[in-house]
Amino acid sequence: MEKIKKAKTKAEAVSAAKIISAYRDYLLSEGKQPASVFKFCKDQGFKEDEFYQYFGSFEALEKSIWKEYIDQTRSGMEADENYQSFSTREKILTFYFMLAETLKADRSFVLHQLKGWKNPSSTPKFLKGFKSSFEAWINSVLNEGKGSGEIANRPFLDQRYDMLFWIHLMFILQFWSHDESANFEKTDAAIEKSVNLAFDLIGKGVLDSAIDFGKFIYQNSKN
């Protein structure tokens, strides 16, 4: 009862941030979603329509938390004056390092969400906005890379790089969620090494020669 009273006094200033923080608290203390939006709002002293003003459902709320991770990382990174002078590889590295830093502040929530994600081949609902924000960003960076020649043009294949980087990001997320090293130092190493590998693969190199040779053999075998 007392909880309701306390919340009521602040009721005028209900904002998206406030709802999110109340939801996060609930989820992490109770270990599960509230029974309903009605119950949640009643307990927290919001009006139900105040909740719907920002979010259509708990899922939509979770989605917005995740999307915010990307947007926050991106804006933080782009605010750095040196960022524009970085190479594509460095931009992507910076992005992952900063994302790891952003997620660190919210690790309990992230781990709780990832725990429920059992099937790695499908993207869970809460990651949908996170994914589209990420893809928008990675595509713009990859295009820059293609322009500067850092990334090789490969017909058809290079259209799917955003997907590959998404899988890569999921790998990093999984690695980080299982990382127990001090200050998540191993995640830093994993990011550094895997991005270097990725760039060795998408830059002009062995793969292009292999494709070229493969094409040649294929064409000649038909004659």
């Binding site: 590889r89 460095e90 910076t94 390092f97 550094e192 270097n196």
Partner: peptide
């Protein structure tokens, strides 16, 4: 292998 510049920055920030 050499550290990338972003990792150098990261090391400093940490």
């Amino acid at each position: 292998p050499p550290l990338s510049y972003p990792l150098v920055v990261r090391t400093f920030e940490k």
